[in-house]
């Protein structure tokens, strides 16, 4: 089963996605948390700490994988597994801007979707967290606009791949699919 969880800043999407991953994982299934955020400063460290605390005691193995998310599969042990991937907005930004020349939205969409298809095929349950970055009414520069468009395309494709899509609004799950 694949579940896509979307939401805005501070919406409670991470906490919901974790509960979902824990509830999907049956006994004996390994739980993996794929972390995509690259930490550059104190604020980033605080965010990581906050998420670590949330996950504490829930039995997740954390794999840091800021780009090429399917490589995380090589770091997993054989057997049944439930995977929580957080989050598509960081992954997309990392993929798009890690080289000197920014990747096009088509390229980045293809890369991310190809990787997630691989993850989906090789896991029993996959929970993917993505961001709603589409509703602030601001017209951004060209680079950011490309990023937003890539995120939009990726979210649409992920929703098509997913068995269930949930939007988290102020901590409340709203079922989209």
């Amino acid at each position: 089963m694949m579940v896509l969880v979307v939401g805005g800043s501070g919406s409670g999407k991470s906490s919901y996605a974790e509960k979902m991953a824990v509830s999907l994982a049956q006994a004996g299934m390994r739980k993996y948390y794929l972390a995509t955020m690259q930490v550059f400063d104190d604020e980033g460290r605080k965010k990581v700490d906050r998420h670590r605390k949330l996950r504490n005691g829930k039995g997740f193995f954390t794999i840091e994988q800021p780009v090429r998310i399917s490589s995380a599969l090589e770091k997993m042990e054989d057997g049944d597994r439930a995977v929580l991937l957080e989050c598509i907005s960081n992954l997309t930004a990392n993929e798009m801007f890690s080289e000197k020349k920014a990747m096009t939205e088509i390229q980045v969409t293809e890369n991310v979707i190809r990787d997630i298809k691989m993850l989906k095929e090789q896991t029993n349950h996959l929970v993917v967290v993505s961001n709603n970055v589409f509703e602030d009414g601001i017209t951004y520069d060209e680079t950011t606009t490309k990023y937003i468009r890539a995120m939009g395309k990726i979210n649409q494709k992920l929703a098509a791949l997913a068995d269930r899509v949930v939007e988290v609004v102020e901590g409340i799950p709203v079922i989209i699919k």
Partner: peptide
Amino acid sequence: DEIGNGIV
């Protein structure tokens, strides 16, 4: 207002 649904 919902203010969280945008670019960080």
